[in-house]
Design a binder for these strands. Structure first.
Length: 585
RNA sequence: GCGCCCGUAGCUCAGUAGGAUAGAGCACAGGAUUCCUAAUCCUGGGGUCGCAGGUUCGAAUCCUGCCGGGCGCACCA
């Protein structure tokens, strides 16, 4: 019987099944609402369940009496040392120490793979994130979406899903034309022309200078005096290629690599957009109509206009949405519908998008579209990231485009480092605003979670280095430590630490299920705190130090304990793409 | 006016599929260092979980209505 994965639920269910066989419980009860978890208060045992309270009513029994019956079944298991009924009918279970020692050995053997789950059953999930328009380098806000998306993808991987990381490239809109013209101007500059000030409406960024020189070197001056209609398409291609290269380099800085880049232009060229609209027409979900002006805030230039609309209100949206503009061209929403349809057809019933909070108003219509295009089979979850509040030592950081002040993600990453950037982005829920203080995040102190967690990991390796005086390198390897006499770990704080590690698989599953990778950051912070606490107990009581002179077996058991902690920390950091350092300096 | 997100300690925030006495850091007050990194730890005070109802054995968590803050609201992506 398995007691700790996932937290004894199997054990509880087995006891309940047995009661059904005995006729104590009726057949066909739903166990869905039964929870099995670690109680916050340790006097409530290692595992607690509400099973008796949940099943009391449907089985027409008194909760505490039913709890007794369940408890009797549980007591028959020799891994269970104590079962108590408490409060309105909680069943509190205490497990034998062996269970926990065995778990620690499992951690050591599994290494950073510990915590992996088959919960996802290999289901294909598509996570789309960043998707910054290819009009310039990534800024800090994109960086947050990148960190969240990548960590969520890694988390889902670990939880047993088959994850595809995808970037949607908007290379077909008006912004790209502006970009192309901007590049052409820089191209003329590269050929020696004095272009003066960059005109209003074009991108002034320096990042177009280098690509323009490349074009000049490659094509010479052949595009200088030709009509725009001749060179616009050519420069569009050049511009997008250059910008995507820029963005890929930025992503590299964060250690992020996408599996798929899908180009908006390809949706258009392959007829996907038209096909999507045809599909909606067939379903009777398109009509020509005139939208009401928005109440309260009427745009100046509002006028009633007939447009081709999608009946998104049939699928939970607030108003029907235009798909075709009055000039006959598609709206962005049209291509986006085609895109999400395409993802579904590629096998992704579950799609997750990471968007900036300013796109919040777009969520409902997109979800409505996914429902419509997949006959309710597809499912879209959108995680919105709030803004980042960039600070410099507590003061608002002035985002000036002009000299001196960095605004791009690359600049920030260069200043604070990839690991710090990736981790700090996970220290808030995605929908909470995040303060990012350029000074504090590199500070080496308790209030810097990156440092705090890294320090715990480094400290462990420091102890292991000291232990190498008495043990061979081989003896300190996780596999070898798994064979140590772990029953020597008798202190309550040591056992509590093992139990906390044993919680890791459950954290992975619940965070993956909720699509909330930030929970991993909080868990790691808590685990690090427990470790630092245990460390300091050795200051007060030398018997609790990790390395105990004259007691090799005890020392070995404690090396196993802390090595386990380092592996769980590394396992968590792996999800964030953060390197677990073995030495601080 | 409508929709979405948020409201938890003085501040910044967690709160695990509805669980037991709501947690952590900062700040504040006190304490621990001949010893594995004190870059850390320990102790203490601090709360009508925005307000009011509802659902049930049980609500910070789910539902409804208010109050307060942020974002978005026709042919922009």
């Amino acid at each position: 019987m398995c007691w700790n994965k996932p937290y004894g639920r199997d054990g509880i269910v087995a006891a309940l099944d047995s009661l059904v066989t005995d006729g104590v419980l009726p057949d066909g009860l739903s166990f869905g609402r039964i929870t099995v978890e670690t109680p916050r208060d340790e006097s409530h045992g290692h595992v607690a369940t509400n099973a008796a309270m949940v099943l009391a009513k449907p089985s027409a029994q008194k909760p505490r009496e039913l709890a007794e019956a369940i408890a009797d079944k549980l007591r028959a298991d020799n891994a269970v040392t104590q079962v108590e009924i408490a409060g309105p009918g909680f069943i509190n279970i205490t497990l034998s120490d062996d269970i926990w020692f065995r778990e620690l050995a499992d951690i050591l053997r599994a290494g950073t793979g510990y915590g992996a789950s088959d919960m996802g059953g290999g289901e294909a999930v598509n996570v789309e994130y960043v998707s910054a328009n290819p009009t310039g380098p990534m800024h800090v806000g994109h960086g947050r979406g990148a960190a969240i998306g990548e960590s969520l993808a890694a988390l889902l991987d670990k939880a047993g899903y088959n994850v595809t990381r995808e970037y949607w490239v908007n290379d077909a809109g008006a912004q790209i034309e502006i970009l192309s013209r901007s590049l052409h101007l820089r191209y003329r500059e590269a050929l020696g022309e004095d272009i003066g000030e960059i005109p209003e409406g074009l991108y002034p960024g320096e990042y177009l200078v280098a690509p323009a020189k490349d074009v000049a070197a490659k094509d010479g001056d052949q595009w200088v005096s030709r009509d725009e209609s001749d060179w616009l398409g050519v420069f569009r291609r050049y511009a997008i290629d250059a910008m995507m290269e820029l963005i890929r380099a930025d992503l590299d800085r964060l250690g992020i690599r996408f599996d798929v880049f899908t180009f908006e232009s390809s949706m258009v060229e392959t007829g996907k957009v038209q096909a999507a609209l045809d599909y909606l027409t067939d379903k009777g979900l398109m009509y020509t109509g005139v939208l009401e002006p928005p109440k309260g805030k009427k745009p100046e230039d509002w006028e009633p206009r007939p447009q081709t609309l999608f009946r998104s209100t049939d699928f939970g949206d607030d108003v029907d949405r235009p798909l075709i503009k009055s000039d006959g061209s598609w709206t962005y929403f049209s291509t986006d519908i085609a895109y999400h349809w395409d993802k579904y057809q590629r096998g992704f019933k579950t799609q997750i998008n990471i968007w900036g909070a300013d796109h919040g108003g777009y969520v409902k219509r997109m979800q409505a579209a996914v429902k419509a295009m997949t006959a309710g089979d597809g499912n879209l979850d959108v995680k919105l990231c709030q803004m980042i509040n960039l600070l410099d030592d507590g003061k608002q950081f002035k985002m000036s485009k002009r000299a001196g002040n960095f605004v791009t993600m690359a600049d920030v990453v260069e200043k604070v480092g990839k690991d710090v950037f990736r981790f700090i982005m996970m220290t808030r829920k995605n929908d909470a605003q995040l303060d990012f203080d350029l000074q504090k995040v590199t500070e080496q102190s308790r209030d810097n979670p990156v440092f705090y967690v890294q320090y715990a990991h480094a400290r462990i390796h420091s102890v292991l280095r000291h232990a190498a005086d008495a043990f061979s390198v081989h003896e300190l390897q996780p596999d070898a430590l798994a064979d140590a006499d772990l029953t020597r770990l008798e202190d309550d704080a040591e056992k509590a630490l093992i139990m906390q590690m044993a919680n890791w698989p459950r954290i992975v599953e619940s965070a993956a299920l909720a699509h909330e990778p930030h929970r991993v950051a909080f868990y790691l912070n808590d685990l690090a705190a427990s470790f630092h606490g245990l460390w300091n107990m050795g200051k007060d009581n030398t018997q609790l130090r990790f390395i105990v002179e004259g007691d090799r077996e005890l020392t070995r058991a404690r090396m196993a304990l802390i090595r386990g902690v380092s592996l769980v920390i590394a396992s968590g950091l792996e999800i964030f793409g953060v390197t677990p350092v073995e030495e601080m300096r």
